[in-house]
């Protein structure tokens, strides 16, 4: 192609053009976006899969800490025993579900013990009730929260994200948030019921620091899982991973299928190229 050089020049120029204002904005200060550390997740990258033990631990953190305020209305008990998830057995899930009551108009007292097909019961009957109980702030639903948060990377990082298939901005943010509670700096105006968080937009968050070292006694280690520290850092990682699974339960099978599909397409493209070349052989074009 004779215009190859032009294309390259154009791309370079466009890159410079895009980088210019981006850099200008960085230097201009604007509002400082805190840096969010990337965690080395087991489910990142094209071969990523969830770590069953981590999901089990994360589920325990969710169940014992977060679930008292945060609903997960799309999360069904049966998901816990589905392929690619925390890997509980069906009997375990049935027993777990039976510990919870779910609303059912046809049952006595309008509630009954949950079965695996039921959704995780919400801690509050309505959004308004949730607000009333939390000083006016609504604890967001966990179902797809890990995908509803993101990190906006500056140029050129965001451009590389397309090639590394970086999809963990949400969990990186949640992990950073859970570990980002700090003493408010001198002169920072906090309202009653607000807490200072380094990564939360505006820094004043209505959620009190939910995790402290040792608050959850991991059952997984007894069940044969690895011994992990019971620290805020570890809890944050585990519950973030759990939330990613909650938002994207078919991630592992999707990525595995993708690998096969792309392999197939490359082979097919090779054969198509050979066929096309064979047909065009001897024709000047």
């Amino acid at each position: 192609m004779m215009s190859n050089r032009i294309v390259i020049a154009a791309i370079a120029l466009a890159g410079a053009l895009l980088a210019g204002p981006a850099l200008a904005a960085e230097e201009g200060g604007g509002h400082s976006t805190p840096h969010i550390d990337r965690v080395d997740w087991s489910f990142a990258g094209i071969f990523g899969t969830y770590d069953e033990h981590q999901l089990q631990r994360g589920f325990q953190v969710y169940r014992e800490v977060c679930a008292s305020c945060h609903s997960a209305r799309l999360f069904a008990f049966r998901n816990l025993s589905e392929e690619g998830g925390p890997g509980f057995s069906e009997a375990q899930v049935r027993a777990l579900a039976a510990e919870y009551q779910v609303p059912d108009d046809s049952a006595d007292g309008e509630t009954r013990a949950a079965i695996p097909a039921d959704r995780w019961p919400s801690p509050y009957p309505s959004d308004q009730a949730a607000r009333d109980a939390n000083g006016g702030a609504l604890p967001p639903d966990f179902s797809v929260l890990a995908k509803a948060r993101g990190v906006s990377d500056p140029f050129p990082t965001w451009a590389f994200n397309y090639f590394t298939a970086y999809q963990e901005g949400g969990v990186d943010y949640i992990h950073a948030l859970l570990t980002g509670y700090e003493e408010a700096p001198e002169g920072f105006d906090l309202q009653p019921g607000q807490y200072y968080n380094e990564v939360y937009p505006g820094h004043a968050i209505s959620m009190p620091p939910p995790l402290v070292d040792g608050v959850v006694d991991y059952a997984d280690a007894e069940a044969g899982g690895a011994e992990v520290p019971e620290t805020v850092e570890q809890y944050s990682r585990d519950v973030s991973a759990f939330m990613m699974w909650l938002a994207e339960p078919h991630l592992a099978s999707r990525k595995a299928a993708g690998f096969r599909v792309i392999l197939f397409l490359v082979l097919f493209a090779g054969l198509m190229y050979a066929t096309k070349s064979r047909i065009w052989k001897g024709i000047e074009h």
């Binding site: 197939f264 082979l267 097919f268 054969l271 198509m272 050979a274 066929t275 064979r278």
Partner: peptide, 8 residues
Amino acid sequence: LYVATGAV
């Protein structure tokens, strides 16, 4: 070649 491409 054609048969292989067609099969794929």
